[in-house]
Design a protein around this nucleic acid. Structure first.
Lengths: 190, 190
DNA sequence: ACTTGCTATGCAACGAGTTGCATAGCACGA
DNA sequence: TCGTGCTATGCAACTCGTTGCATAGCAAGT
């Protein structure tokens, strides 16, 4: 399980409450790791019991108090040990690929709209990534104006992960074009 | 859940036992959907109860009997209805990306070997895919000699899914090269 | 005879992830 | 003032997926 480790990384980048973490998992972290707020609250509680993180009550104006978590020494050690462990052949689940092979036993052309929807979603996400890259990682000073001026290594590593997302989206768009061209060959009257 | 649907597709391509399915999920199907034998047996039993598949005892020489499953009308209908349902923004889990961002809080250079291992695994898989493509989808007659001569649509769709796997592996290899170049900049004495 | 290894199926327990629901404070507009 | 919506946290029930173990037949080597 790596949700704990994803949370540790996120809290090291910036301490925050369960709610804030949940929102990060809808945004930047969520691009390579998804989690719902229930999962996050449950795991945070376990991590607090294990001494991986420490909570601090933060009263707020105009909204409920929050519990702000930050990483404790034990958590840092746990992350470090996980980083040094070799891992996983990562298991894969591509619904769309199942659908495409399944389309051979149904009407292949019926899949065209679905594939177009997915291609559009990948285009949108690519545009979103590129905008983020432009904003945070380019231009004069090469990011000196970035939010809270993270150290070099942190920024460079965030950037290379983002480049991975960009490469992934471009690959998917290209492949979905290929899929559409293939499906088009089965159009009625062809 | 799409394991049921992945099994339906696999059984439509060719009927087989739970054991045989488990092996397919280590091979071709497993390239885009993983499952262990326990999962498969459990789901097959449920699918049999629901009338999606039918089992037939097949005695064998020199080995235990097997239960060969094939898709029933209800299963075909269920697959068809799933194919027509729009779906999922697919949730993502990339351990390696978590590790890379986490490396900012540890020694980034310690990650190099791990990334190299992954790159090699992707190279191996790419070579395996390309060999499969060569074997099944190229050459004179363009696959007329392929195993059990599947209909055109089935073969073409299998091919386009395989091309997706190839594109994915190429993208990953390129990105991991990028990651290695980035990590190299943090080498001790740099 | 003994071990190793492959085919073939399955149970039981656990852990991870999802879904639905509940609570509560406060802001803002109709 | 009433509903809508956002911040903030959490429980309970369920499903999905993993791990460890068990059984059993037969083949092949030592």
């Amino acid at each position: 399980m790596a949700l704990e480790h994803a949370i540790l990384v996120s809290l090291l980048e910036k301490p925050g409450s369960g709610y804030e973490l949940a929102r990060r998992f809808e945004r930047s972290i969520g691009y390579f790791w998804t989690a719902t707020h229930q999962q996050i609250y449950r795991v945070l509680k376990r991590m607090e019991n294990d001494g991986w993180v420490e909570a601090r009550d933060v009263p707020q104006r105009g909204r409920p108090d929050k519990k702000e978590y930050s990483v404790a020494d034990l958590g840092r050690a746990a992350l470090s040990s996980w980083l040094h462990d070799p891992i996983e052949p990562e298991s894969v689940r591509h619904d769309l690929a199942v659908k495409i092979r399944g389309a051979a036993f149904d009407d292949p052309a019926a899949l065209i709209r679905e594939v177009e929807r997915h291609r559009q979603a990948h285009r949108d996400r690519l545009a979103h990534y590129l905008a983020g890259e432009e904003r945070d990682f380019t231009g004069p000073e090469a990011g000196a104006a970035a939010p809270d001026a993270s150290p070099d290594a942190e920024r460079e590593l965030q950037h290379v992960v983002l480049r991975g997302g960009i490469a992934y989206e471009r690959m998917m768009i290209g492949w979905l074009d290929d899929v559409l061209a293939t499906l088009a060959r089965f159009r009625p009257g062809h």
